[in-house]
Amino acid sequence: MKTKLFNPDASFLLRIKKYLHVSTIVIFVLLALFLLYAIVLSMISSTSYVKTINKAYSDDSTTLVSGKNLISSGLHSEELFLEARLAMLTEDSITLSIDLTDSLIRLEMKGVVVHTARISKIQVSRIFRYLNYQTKDALFGKPFTTGQTIATIPKTEYLLKKVSADSLIQPGERLPDTTHEKAICFLLHLDKNIMIDIRQSGCANDDAYQLYAMRLKRDKYSEVLKGLLKPAVPKYSPVIGIELAKNDARTIYKALPDKPRLALRL
């Protein structure tokens, strides 16, 4: 009798277990498919970026001058860089020129180099290798315009000094000057979706850097998610990572205007 009473419950539990087992497998498979889809989409996004940008700047009707081949590519990139720097002469504010070939970053004012810093580490997205000649001509022969900037430190910090009506000085209320303690990292969003990530050397363990890196990752994954939900090819942003000495990173960030223009040489 006991077994008869117990058996239906056991079978029920077994069925539940089986059901749960099946549903777990289904969920796992679905998740795996979703992940695969996300990976494929993010891979497609990079190739799609190259295709789009190459198509935008390549004119099939014109043939490339054969002289502009690999022999003179180094010279040609220098030529483009100089052209871009010359184009920035019209700018009234401070401009930035990044020379990845010579590992130098310079602040310039009307073509006069006012600050030069050596780049200690460079990381460039592989995507730049696949840009064709005409695209490189179009991209690097002119200065880039910067849009949004993300940074671990503010551009300016003021010491607030309030004086009351009876002209007695009240103690100054200083906004915490954290620029000397925090890691200096900033990201410049350029046109054509290119991003320049400038960091001070050896900041991996810094809290400010961790937050900054998390924000960058969050932005990246949110773009992929947006693409998945639409569904559309997610926006791809090639990144150029640069590491500098802390003083140089701070000087450059503080000196640059809100939307600086910059010349880039790969």
Binding site: V65, S66, G67, K68, N69, I71, S72, L75, H76, E78, E79, L82, E83, R85, L86, G111
Partner: peptide, 19 residues
């Protein structure tokens, strides 16, 4: 190629002197 290289060198020198 040599001529192009020469021309590019000349152009680079011009741009440098302008800068």
């Amino acid at each position: 190629d040599h001529l192009v290289e020469m021309a590019e060198n000349r152009r680079i020198n011009d741009l440098r002197s302008k800068l």
